[in-house]
């Protein structure tokens, strides 16, 4: 699979945020989007996921397999919010998303192990700390399989050890032929990583 953007421009409320972005990422590669606040990293990810219409240009996937015909069906989106219900337990949240999005390589217990949250699956999500919530949201990426990960500041709130563990998870995902596209301020330490610098062109 290959994710291609051509002359992609995005806007928020009529104001152009970024213009004429080109990139191409294929299986096993990752794209790290860097840039100062307000340079349009989140907007770019939301345009790619299809939540926002592109002002100009296009983003598409080529060499698709029939399981994932469109970008929306092929991607996991991890935004600023964790998309978990505070009133439900961690396990209930993950079970729901797994049933809704389809099975992945790992089951719930293995995914919680992989993010270092084993043994707290029975707690309500609302009881967790910021970093633990983020890790539970990362576990959500593992319980359903999607080849393309769109991550918006994925390591926000994580400690050093969890960051490294998450880098390992992204590495495993890429090694298995997945694509990671992450907006971040921190170096994620990925191999075969392309970098996209965004900034206001004035």
């Amino acid at each position: 699979m290959r994710l291609i953007a051509e002359n992609l421009s995005g806007e928020r409320g009529g104001e152009p945020v970024f213009e004429d972005i080109d990139f191409s990422v294929e299986d096993g590669e990752s794209l790290v989007i860097t840039g100062p606040n307000g340079s349009g990293k989140s907007t770019l990810l939301r345009v790619v996921a299809g939540f926002l219409p592109a002002a100009r240009g296009s983003v598409r996937i080529a060499e698709v397999d029939e399981t994932f015909p469109s970008i929306a069906s092929a991607c996991h989106y991890l935004g600023h919010q964790n998309a978990m219900k505070t009133a439900l337990t961690v396990t209930e949240n993950l079970v729901f998303w797994q049933q809704f999005c389809g099975k992945g390589r790992l089951d719930i217990g293995e995914a919680l192990d992989a993010v270092g949250l084993d043994g707290i699956g029975h707690l309500p999500f609302g009881y967790l700390s910021t970093g633990q919530r983020r890790r539970a949201a990362i576990a959500k990426l593992l319980v359903s399989h999607r080849p393309l990960w769109l991550l918006d500041e994925p390591t926000a709130g994580l400690d050093k050890a969890s960051e490294q563990r998450f880098t390992g998870l992204m590495g495993t995902h890429c090694a298995a032929g997945g694509i990671v596209m992450a907006a971040t301020h921190l170096p994620l330490g990925l191999e075969r990583a392309k970098t996209l610098e965004m900034g206001r062109q004035s």
């Binding site: 939540f51 989106y77 998309a83 978990m84 219900k85 505070t86 998303w97 809704f100 999005c101």
Partner: peptide, 16 residues
């Protein structure tokens, strides 16, 4: 919408 779940519900529109 507040906790971001709505994005994922919309994102899975090809499955459901």
């Amino acid at each position: 919408r507040e906790d971001g779940s709505l994005d994922l519900l919309v994102l899975n529109r090809d499955r459901h």
